[in-house]
Write a protein that binds this DNA or RNA. Sequence first.
DNA 1: ATATTTTATGAAATGGATTCCATAGCAAGC
DNA 2: GCTTGCTATGGAATCCATTTCATAAAATAT
Lengths: 327, 327
Amino acid sequence: MANIKEIARIAGVSVTTVSRVLNNHPYVSKDKRTAVLETIEQLNYTRNMNAVHLITGRTGAVAVILPFINSFYFSVVMDGLAQAALAAQYRLILCQTNYVPEEELKVLDMLRNKEIDGVIIVSTALNPEVIEPYTIYGPVVTCQNSGERQFSSVYIEHYAAFRHGLEYLYSKGHRRIGYCEGRQNGSSASIRQNAFQDFLAEKGLPFDPEWMIFDCIREEDGAEVARRLLDKPDRSGRPEAMMISGDHVAAGLIIEARKHGLKIPEDLAVMGFDNQPIGRLLGITTIDNQLHQMGEAAFGIIHEHINGSSLPVTRKLEYRIIERSTV
Amino acid sequence: MANIKEIARIAGVSVTTVSRVLNNHPYVSKDKRTAVLETIEQLNYTRNMNAVHLITGRTGAVAVILPFINSFYFSVVMDGLAQAALAAQYRLILCQTNYVPEEELKVLDMLRNKEIDGVIIVSTALNPEVIEPYTIYGPVVTCQNSGERQFSSVYIEHYAAFRHGLEYLYSKGHRRIGYCEGRQNGSSASIRQNAFQDFLAEKGLPFDPEWMIFDCIREEDGAEVARRLLDKPDRSGRPEAMMISGDHVAAGLIIEARKHGLKIPEDLAVMGFDNQPIGRLLGITTIDNQLHQMGEAAFGIIHEHINGSSLPVTRKLEYRIIERSTV
DNA sequence: ATATTTTATGAAATGGATTCCATAGCAAGC
DNA sequence: GCTTGCTATGGAATCCATTTCATAAAATAT
C-alpha cells in the first residue's frame, strides 16, 4: 500500500531523503531522519524489493542447478552452499531439474532476465559449450571440471581420486577388481570409468565387463550387485575387490553379501566413495571428497564474481582415503 | 540493453503491441506480430523480469524455510516440493535457517517485501502466533500441525502414528519400552514424547527416564545409545524394545548392538520411523509417514492460495507401519 | 574577509514492463 | 440505415525505489 512517495509526503521530506534513510546514507539531519523513521513505523511500511531489484539490477539471489536434492551427494553440497549463502545474506533458488536440458536452460535464462545474480551448476545434463555463452549475462560456477572455460569451477579430481583408491586396493594385494557406478554418462562418472580402465590396462589386470556395473544409485542396487556376484558358482569368476562410487551403494552390497555369509574384506574387499555417515557406521573404507567444502567454495567464488572479480577461477579440492575395515 | 520501448520503435509499433506479443495476447495482426518477433530476435531481447515482478506484484517464487537440507527428512520433503514446483513452473527459494529465529523472520519479511508469493515452512523455531500476522502479506503453509490458525498446514499425526507404533510393540509382547528422539524441543518431537508418555501411563508400563534418550540425530548417536544400553550389566535394567524416531538412528543402534552380539529382535526389538532406504536395507520395521507426499501437498496448497483460494486448509497425511524384521 | 569543503535537501531522470482507457475500422444483426 | 460487437492499435498512467545533478547553507581553511 504505502510507498516511498507517501512516506515522503507525510514526513514532510523528499523521496530522496526517505531513500537515504532507508539505505543508511549520511547527510540526513537527525530530525528528518526520525520523522521518516516514525512515519515508516506508523504506516508499517517496507520497501517493495522488486522495485529495488529493477533499479539496482541486482536481486541478491543465486540459482542452483542440480538434478534432485534427495541424495547424499547433492544435499551435502547444497548444505555447504546454503551455509555460505546464509552468511553472505544471499538467497539460493533451488532449481531441481531432473537433468532435463530445457529446464536447465530456463534457469540460465533467468540470468539473462536479470532474475538472479548468478548460477551455480552442481550437476547438469548440458555441455559446457552450451553454458558458456550465458556467461556474458552473469557469473556461472560449476562443480564439475569443464576444462578451459569462460566460467569458474570447483571440483575434485575424480580421475586422480579414483586411481588413488584403485592403487590402494592394489597395494593390499587385490588384482581382480570390479567397479560400480551410478549413471553411465555424466561427466564425473565417465572420468571415473576412464580412471578404472586406464588403471587396469596399465597394471595388466584382468578386465571383465561383467565386473563393471552401472546404474547403481540406491542402497538396493548395491544389494542387487551382491546377489549377482554371489550367483557365480566359481569363486575365481568373482572379483576380489569392488570399487564403488557411493558409500550407500557399498553399504547395500556389504550388508547383502554378509547375509550370504561372505566375509568382508576377506572374501570381498569393498572400497566406497563420498564418505557418508552410513560408511562410517559400517566401517567402510572410503574416499572423502569434501562435498561440503565444495558447496562453500562454489558459493564463495560466485560471490566474488558478483562483486566484481571477472577472471574465471578453477579450484581443485583435496581428496583422501579413509582407511577403515572393508579393504 | 534493449527494452520494450526500443523494440517498439524499431518494429514500428507501440509498446502495448510489443507487450501483447510477449504475453500472447490476441488482437495483434499477423504482420505486426512477426515484425515484433523479428526485432526481438535481432536485438537478442529478453524482458527484465524485475520490471514484470514490480508491475504484476508477483514473482513466481516461493520460499521454503527449513533448518538444514542435509538430512533424510528434509531432503525428501524438499524433493516433493521441488517436483511439484517444477511441474507448476514455480521457483523455490531454499532458506536454510539453522533454526535461527531472526533468519526465519527475514524470510517472512520477504513476503511483506513482495519478493516472494508465499512461504512454505517445513520446520521452524518460531511459534505459530508469531507467524500468523504475516499471513496478511501472502499465503503461508506449514508442515507441522499448528492448531487452528489463519494459515494452512499439511502434516502427519505424529501422536497417532507414534502410538500406533507403540501399540504394535505392545501387541508383540514388549512391555519395557524405550524411546529415542532427535531434538527435545520442536513441535513434532514433543508431540511424540507426549504420545510415548501417555501410552506408558495408560498401559501401566514401567517408565524409566534413562530409557528416554534425546539428541539422537545421526547414525552415530544410535550406536552410542546401543553402547549405553549394553553397559547395563543387568538385562532387566534394559528395555526390551526401542521406539526410535529416524531409521538412520535405528540403523546405528542395530549395527552397534549386533556387533556386541545382541540379537535383534530377540534381545532387543527396534522400531524405526521415516521409512528410509537404510531401514529397508537392514529390514527395520518402521513407520512410513509419506514425506514426499507432504512436500507435494504443501506446494499444491500454496499454489492454490496464490491463485485465489483464501481459506486455510488442514491436510492430514496417512501413516502406516511397515512390518519387517526388527520387532 | 574570502575561498573552499562539508553537510543537507530536493527535483527529476531512470530502470522496464503491464494495463486501463480511448479510438477506429469492419462485420454482423435487425 | 442504424446499432451492436469484434478486431486492432496506441497513449498514458502505473508499479516503486535509486541516483545523478543542482542548489544552498554551514563550517572550516587561508
